[in-house]
Amino acid sequence: MFKKEATTIRQQIVRLKERGLDIPNDELATKYLSNISYYRLGEYWYVMQSDKETHHFKPNSRFSDVVALYNFDAELRLLLFGVIEKIEISLRTKLIYHLSHEVDPWWFCNSEIFIDRLQFSRTLAKIEEEISRARSKDVTIKNHFKKHKDDLRFPPSWKSLEQVSFGNLSKLYGNLKHTVKAKDTIAEEYGAVNHTYLPSWLQSIAQIRNFCAHHSRLWNRNLPGTVKLLSKPPNPWITDDANVPKQHEFTKLYVHMCLMRYMLNIIQPNNIFTQDLEALFLRYPNVDPNALGMKTDWENEPLWT
């Protein structure tokens, strides 16, 4: 049975000091703990503990380093959220355009073009929820239903899919039958050669987007290690074999950021993702890039230049 009682901020500071965390300014620590919960910050000081049972800290563990890690992670999420936004808008555009021309404007409701009927039903149910929420808020959806009262279908894809989350867009794409030409066409446009690779990229990016949206920790986090990498990408990638992420490193953020950069280079060739990422590491020199799986001289690889 759980028996721990709630502690005051003063008690939290005393406890951290007793366990060996250097906190020279109690007033500043109080300000942080008043606005960022003890357990949220705990995700960043966990690695500083020498004993995970007693929660005692390693020598020279500082509260200022905990705050720096927290702020670095917050800025990293904002940076990636901006990158993912461009990928999401691009994917939505390509799905709407190619499938509406190949099938019809209501292709996303057509179970015949999807592999897994059960997954299709679940995804469509979520899309229906998203459109229902938009019906009272979004002017385009509201006006569509007002103007077309006798049409019981969803609005066409160019209206409906603007309301759909990245996660559901990635599920729609991944579940398309391989005989649907647009599935390969979209993959080719992203430099993914064919439909084999792109679904795993989109799934991983969608999950990272959710971490960003919900302010969840990305630094030193284990991510889904299911992405598939091309052996010979048609566009600039990583030339040094030692710097290509290996399978056991796929749980680190670096490989996922590489895929984001690969897609972004096509969507927005003159992007400043590399510069922004370099500047972030410069602002926080105490952050260990290895916690993200970063490779030596990553910024000099063709992918990042």
Score class of each variant (00 low, 15 high):
283 R>D: 06
198 L>H: 09
124 L>D: 09
186 I>G: 11
58 K>F: 11
305 T>W: 00
200 S>P: 08
122 R>S: 08
305 T>L: 03
118 L>Q: 08
93 T>N: 13
124 L>F: 09
203 Q>D: 06
295 K>Q: 05
214 H>A: 04
8 T>E: 15
297 D>W: 11
63 F>C: 01
195 H>D: 12
140 T>H: 10
258 C>A: 05
3 K>P: 03
151 D>C: 03
287 V>E: 00
257 M>A: 04
181 K>I: 05
207 Q>K: 09
251 T>D: 14
26 D>K: 05
207 Q>G: 01
176 L>P: 07
14 V>C: 05
157 S>W: 09
137 K>W: 08
35 N>R: 13
142 K>P: 00
67 V>H: 01
277 L>E: 02
12 Q>E: 09
225 G>S: 13
90 S>G: 07
256 H>P: 06
219 W>M: 14
242 A>S: 13
119 Q>Y: 15
38 Y>A: 06
123 T>I: 15
6 A>R: 04
45 W>C: 00
218 L>K: 15
223 L>A: 13
268 Q>H: 08
92 R>Q: 07
17 K>S: 01
47 V>K: 01
36 I>G: 00
245 P>C: 12
91 L>T: 08
53 E>Q: 07
60 N>W: 01
208 I>H: 01
87 I>F: 03
115 I>K: 05
301 E>F: 02
75 E>M: 10
99 L>N: 12
301 E>I: 06
10 R>D: 15
166 F>Y: 03
30 T>M: 08
294 M>V: 04
264 L>I: 02
125 A>Q: 11
192 A>Y: 05
120 F>D: 02
36 I>E: 00
138 D>W: 08
